[in-house]
Simulated assay, not measured.
Amino acid sequence: MKIHIDEDKCVGGGQCVLAAPEVFDQRDEDGIVILLEQSPPADLGPQVHEAALLCPALAIVVEG
C-alpha cells in the first residue's frame, strides 16, 4: 500500500487523522495533512482506506 497526498486539495478537515492517527497528522499553522507513513503496514489498510473515503476534498489516494 502506498499513499499519495495532494496538499493543494486538502482543506484541513482532519478526518484522516481521526481515522488513522498512526499515518496522518496536521500542520499546526493551517491544518493541512502531514503524511507520517507513506507505506504503512498492511494491518493499517482498513483505517487508511477509511481516511481516504472520509476526506472531504478527496486529497488522499491509496494504491494497493
Rank of each mutant, 00 (worst) to 15 (best):
A57H: 06
C10M: 11
L53G: 15
D30V: 14
V23H: 06
L44V: 07
Q15I: 02
P21I: 08
G14L: 04
I34Y: 05
L35D: 01
A52T: 00
F24L: 06
K2F: 03
M1P: 08
P41G: 15
M1D: 07
C10D: 11
A57R: 13
S39A: 11
P56F: 11
V17I: 11
Q26L: 08
H49E: 15
V33N: 00
G14D: 15
G13F: 06
A52C: 12
V48H: 01
A51C: 09
C16W: 13
V48D: 02
I32V: 15
V62I: 15
P40K: 01
L53E: 15
D25T: 14
A20S: 13
P41I: 14
L18R: 02
C55T: 12
Q38F: 12
G45E: 13
G45I: 00
V62Q: 13
C55K: 08
L54M: 15
A51D: 12
I32A: 01
G31L: 04
F24V: 12
L35F: 01
K9C: 00
I5R: 00
G13M: 04
V11Y: 00
Q47C: 07
V33R: 03
D30L: 07
S39P: 04
P46R: 05
C10L: 05
E63K: 12
M1R: 01
V33L: 15
D43M: 12
D30Y: 01
A20P: 10
K2H: 06
A51L: 14
I5G: 04
D8Q: 13
P41R: 13
L54R: 11
C55Y: 09
V62D: 08
L36F: 11
I5M: 01
L53R: 15
L18N: 00
C10R: 05
L18F: 06
P46D: 07
I34D: 03
A42K: 10
G13L: 10
I3S: 04
A59E: 10
P41D: 14
G12V: 08
E7I: 04
D25R: 04
K2Y: 02
L36M: 09
G12Q: 12
I5P: 09
K9G: 00
D8I: 00
A42G: 09
E63A: 07
A59D: 06
S39L: 00
D6H: 08
A51S: 10
P56M: 13
L36N: 12
A20N: 06
K2A: 02
R27I: 10
F24A: 05
E63V: 14
G45C: 02
Q15A: 10
V17P: 00
L18A: 13
G12Y: 02
A51K: 10
M1Q: 02
G14M: 07
D25Y: 00
V48E: 02
A57Q: 07
L44K: 14
V33M: 09
P46E: 06
Q15W: 00
R27N: 03
Q38V: 02
I5L: 12
C10G: 12
K9D: 04
A59P: 05
I34V: 14
